[in-house]
């Protein structure tokens, strides 16, 4: 039923959400450096890996068992990690700040805007930004010769799907946060995900038990999906990754919308 409400809201009240996006654009226009830094960070990582680390490592085993250059192996993981980080920071730190500190949403809700408008607008903005970052990063990958297949085009919607999944769960988590100290837990969760989700090395370096544990990591599914797309190793297994991320987005979205409603309109 909630999904039905969400769809109805998207179609009839899209204009409300677009006003929330307009506000975020206005703020971004005043803080362009913050916006640019979100793109620059993964590109710096990529240069470091291509020029430095990649020379030392040489080739590694790709998803299809064949050899690929280390930079081509790591680049899609950086794209996935940046999609995750962007969505999570926006939905946790960003939402927490605006809701509890800035009381921004209280001001919005005194107007004809509804909690659904606010939620859709914030998610929409986060996704627009994610889209811009993903396109820019893909361009860099193409220029550096790290894209092996036309399937790579689908890596951009895959990054957006990751944004929905991590953004929805992040938003749900943010509604349970009470103080800035709680937000440190977010960093504590993100770092191991970033390092151990078969991001910088293939999954098969782990023993069997750790491999299974890693497959529970949502970032692992994002990395595996995007890596297969940019390297062109396409198979039905990819749909499993898509399903995992989609399930995250739906469950997170339902919890977030219910919690936001309770908290914003007591």
């Amino acid at each position: 039923m909630l999904t039905g409400q969400l769809i109805a809201a998207v179609t009839t009240r899209g204009s409300g959400a677009s006003r929330v996006i307009e506000r975020d654009l206005l703020v971004t226009r005043n803080n362009l450096m913050v916006f640019v830094s979100g793109f620059v960070e993964p590109v710096f990582y990529l240069f470091a890996i291509d020029v430095g680390l990649g020379r030392l490592v040489g080739d590694v085993t790709g998803p299809d068992g064949g050899p690929v250059s280390y930079a081509a192996f790591a680049a899609p993981a950086l794209l996935a990690a940046s999609a995750m980080n962007g969505a999570v920071y926006e939905s946790t730190f960003g939402i927490f700040f605006k809701m509890r500190w800035g009381k921004l949403y209280d001001a919005m809700l005194a107007t004809p805007l509804t909690p659904t408008d606010v939620a859709l607008g914030e998610i929409g903005w986060s996704q627009l930004r994610g889209l811009a970052y993903a396109c820019a990063f893909m361009t860099v990958m193409v220029v550096m010769g790290l894209v092996a297949s036309p399937w790579a085009v689908l890596a951009i919607p895959a990054a957006i799907l990751m944004g929905f999944a991590f953004g929805a769960v992040g938003m749900a988590v943010a509604t349970f946060m009470r103080s800035w100290v709680d937000l440190d837990m977010v960093n504590l969760a993100l770092l191991p995900l970033f390092l151990f989700s078969a991001t910088f090395y293939p999954l098969d370096v782990y023993p069997r038990s750790l491999q299974m544990l890693t497959q529970l990591s949502p970032l692992y599914h994002g990395v595996a999906l995007i890596r297969s797309l940019t390297l062109g190793t396409i198979g039905p297994g990819l749909l499993l990754h898509v399903a995992f991320l989609a399930a995250m987005a739906v469950v997170g979205g339902i919890v977030a919308s219910r919690r936001l409603h309770e908290q914003l309109l007591p």
Binding site: E22, R23, V27, A107, T111, L113
Partner: peptide
């Protein structure tokens, strides 16, 4: 809205 100027505060509120 602490991230906006005085004018932009009025502007965006009207847009809401």
């Amino acid at each position: 809205d602490e991230e906006l100027s005085v004018t932009d505060n009025l502007y965006i509120y009207g847009r809401y």
